[in-house]
Amino acid sequence: MALAVKTRTQNTNPGHIGVDLRGVGHRYGRTTVLQDIDLQTGPGVFGLLGPNGAGKTTLLRILATVLKPAHGDVALLGRATKDAHDLREIRRRLGYLPQQFGFYPNFTVFEFIEYFALLKKMPPNRVRAAVATAIERVGLEDRARSKMKSLSGGMLRRVGIAQAIVNEPELLLLDEPTVGLDPEQRVIFRTLLREMAETSAVFVSTHLVEDVAAACSEVMLMDDGSLIFHGTAHDLVALGQNDDLPGDSPIERGYGAVLAGNRERR
């Protein structure tokens, strides 16, 4: 069910919104965590699903330029990651929310986001308005001056989202962004994602299938380090029409069906 992908030569194409991974693989010690990932996208919101240990976090780290893959070519936003100058240009336009992140307890919400806005080399005279915008977009206006240590888990997560979007990134990578958010906040978050779909490439790794169904233009399913499905949420739902499959919703059943099919083949 993979979408037909246009093949492009690996030329730099700055200004292109999207990613281009060819033959990307990675190991930790002797354990292979990613094998032979080929992925080309334009703008949009891409959901990344898969069981624990499938390699989703590793893939996001590679896209976030935190991790250099053991082999393969990575081009982000039309630039190769091998060049130091291009890497800096990519990072100015990038936003990343890891699964776990530390926070500086005595910073206020505003100061924390401002700190990273500055580190992203945003023009200093635009930083404050951008930080205020990001705070409003995640609904934390009444906590802007609260210290980070006084926040709940869900609020901390939203601060994390805010620092990721403060520079209006063209490439946004979110690892389990909705953990700790209540259903109302998740709805606001999905609206945020849909707003960004036109002008950015957004990758969301999540266990929550319904988040993917509601907000993602394309869905990728990973298992055991490989990309085993790349299509629309609609395609995944179509695979789950059989009620005998495990799962409480068509998309969950589709997810289960693809996983089971992949494991049978191995």
Binding site: L87, R91, F101, Y104, Q163
Partner: peptide
């Protein structure tokens, strides 16, 4: 390094 390690590694600075 430890506290906001991963996020800091994605910064252009």
């Amino acid at each position: 390094a430890d506290v906001a390690f991963e996020i800091s590694r994605t910064m252009p600075v």
